[in-house]
């Protein structure tokens, strides 16, 4: 019974968790490791899940805590400019380049802001972000607004 539930949660959340982790560490292998560690924890804790919150909030909370523990491994996450340019078709390259610029810009934010903006861009509502991070709803709302302004500025500066 847990296996089916776990596989359904995995199918629904894996890519979201991967993107959240990628937004935090800006390194594909590292992000994959974080996503895997998240689901190992989900598997181990699933029998004890009490539905105080939804599955999504619970899984995001595990992933966020694992991301925060990455401080143990490194003070800085990678922001490798050599990853930004790759040879693809012009349109693909443009999209891919802009995406990588976005992830790099996010990696330059403070740790909690990286998590907040990653969850926001993932479509998680602000109340749920507040539940996941332990911040107040008002605090999350203010931060999201400021973070987006900061990101637009960074993206503009990169274009110049």
């Amino acid at each position: 019974m847990y296996k089916e539930l776990f596989e359904s949660l995995y199918a629904h959340y894996w890519q979201r968790i991967y993107r959240l982790a990628l937004g935090y560490v800006n390194d594909a292998d590292w992000a994959k490791g974080i996503a895997q560690e998240t689901f190992v924890n989900v598997w181990n804790q699933l029998p004890k899940f009490r539905a105080d919150s939804g599955y999504g909030t619970w899984i995001y909370r595990i992933a966020v805590n694992i991301c925060l523990r990455q401080i143990e491994r490194s003070k800085k996450v990678m922001s490798d400019e050599s990853k930004i340019r790759q040879s693809k078709s012009v349109e693909e390259e443009y999209k891919e380049t802009n995406t990588q610029i976005l992830y790099q810009a996010i990696s330059e934010l403070s740790e909690m802001n990286r998590i907040i903006i990653s969850l926001t861009l993932e479509g998680v509502d602000q109340k749920q972000i507040a539940d996941v991070t332990g911040l107040t709803h008002a605090n999350v709302r203010t931060r999201v607004h400021r973070i987006k302004e900061e990101l637009y500025q960074k993206l503009n500066n990169y274009g110049k």
């Binding site: 995995y10 890519q15 993107r19 895997q36 976005l102 500025q153 274009g159």
Partner: peptide, 24 residues
């Protein structure tokens, strides 16, 4: 890159995702 042309959500979700394998 002008900020009013950038859709952050679209950029965020652009396929750049590692293919998942539940076996791992």
């Amino acid at each position: 890159m002008e900020s009013n042309q950038v859709n952050l959500e679209q950029l965020w979700a652009t396929p750049r995702v590692e293919h998942s394998d539940i076996k791992e």
